[in-house]
Design a protein around this nucleic acid. Structure first.
Lengths: 233, 233
DNA sequence: CCTCGAACGAGAGCACCGCTCTCGCCGACC
DNA sequence: GGTCGGCGAGAGCGGTGCTCTCGTTCGAGG
């Protein structure tokens, strides 16, 4: 049972992160000021350091929260009862919708790392969630025999030293027809999804794409085909 | 003919941008300090404002230079005499090599936009160069009859309101077999290329990919197939 | 050739930033 | 009840982007 002091500490911590998230959504990560956050919650700047040892730790907290929010968005958009292609499209669409609704958070997660290079290990589990959702869809499709493009030998053929264990697990062990060729395509589809969303969000497609919604729908369909869903290659 | 004053002005401007590029490579765009640049060139900070009206304008200069450097890297890697697949692989590899050699510059170009949203129009021509290189390869392949996956009606069928004129032009007008389906795949391949490079550079693939070089080679091959080069779909 | 204006570098200064240190204060535990 | 630790406030340090002013110097026009 938490003491009263721990409870108020957790409360104030939540207040600070809420204010930080508010300011992140407004001005972006680069302009997020710890002093402004402190002003927002009615504290002096030095008091915030009782709760977060540095501005970067506060940002790390926001990063984890962002990954979790995006992960839950992807998970709730996935209906395991639906067909593989529908699940794929629904999750991709949910990721894009979340990104468009929270551009600064998305940029914080998938844009340039803010300082030099500080990807704390704490972020890994939260960051993996949307990848796990996509991987589960493909694994389920493979188990249902709806995934094409594997080696076809029924094994889960590995190319030594190519794909790490993390990616092997999320696609489901023992799924028939899943080999490293499929895993590469799954990783590529994931990277492509975020590349497309980043290009759209960061303005690299202005002038080249007119109807962003229609374009994204076609992208999702192409990526589904690439990864082995939908029509045979 | 430039006066002596204009010449020394251009010289000092180049000195400032060189110092800024040096600092960008060292500490990244977020930590790039105009005052440190001024110290580096032996000036006081306010004197730099005679040459760049603000820190963001200095960054914009670096962005344009970065796009140009990447563009020339892509262009010099392209041998028009080679086959479409080899050209595709060579240019993709050159882009990745440049990104790995200049991670902070790459992050500045394709990471999160630094302030709120400031993509000056000056950057567009420089930013288009690598896209033009890739588009030219596909256009040449289409004219040579080496591009598969179009609608096959020989026209350049448009889907109204989907693809902008900018993307239509770089793929070459009148190329047989190039329709909006191909254009969508070309844009997707471009986005996927940068998504894959960004994931690798920003650490989103650690644990999932062991041999980054082998993985990227497979990615390039898959993207080539996706876009219509290589084996028929 | 001389002059006058424009460009230039230096310095001071403003507001803001991240972060540190100290100092009272108040509550929780012995 | 006393004591100790967590807490908020304040001052302060070095740094930042940016502005303004003030001499100086260079160059083009009369």
């Amino acid at each position: 049972m938490p003491t009263a002091r721990e409870r108020v500490r957790a409360e104030i911590t939540a207040e600070i992160t809420a204010a930080a998230r508010r300011q992140l959504a407004e001005v972006g990560a680069a302009a997020l000021s710890l002093r402004a956050v402190a002003r927002d919650v009615g504290m002096v700047s030095s008091a915030v350091y009782r709760y977060f040892p540095s501005r970067d730790d506060l940002l790390t907290r926001l990063i984890i929260d962002g990954y979790d929010a995006l992960g839950t968005a992807a998970e709730t958009a996935d209906d395991p009862a639906a067909g593989p292609e529908e699940r794929w499209a629904a999750v991709c669409g949910a990721v894009r919708d979340w990104a468009r609704a929270h551009p600064h958070e998305y940029a914080l997660l998938y844009g340039s790392p803010v300082p030099g290079y500080s990807a704390p290990r704490d972020t890994v589990p939260a960051a993996s969630r949307v990848g796990i959702v996509l991987g589960t869809i493909l694994g389920d499709a493979a188990r249902a025999g709806r995934l094409t493009g594997g080696s076809g030998d029924g094994g889960n053929g590995r190319v030594p030293g190519l794909i790490g264990d993390a990616a092997v697990e999320v696609l489901g062990k023992g799924a028939p027809g899943v080999d490293d060729a499929v895993r590469v395509r799954a990783l590529l589809a994931w990277s492509s999804l975020f590349g497309s969303i980043s290009f759209e969000l960061f303005g690299h497609l202005v002038g080249s794409v007119e109807d962003a919604d229609a374009y994204f729908a076609r992208v999702v369909a192409e990526l589904g085909t690439l990864v082995g869903l939908g029509p045979a290659r």
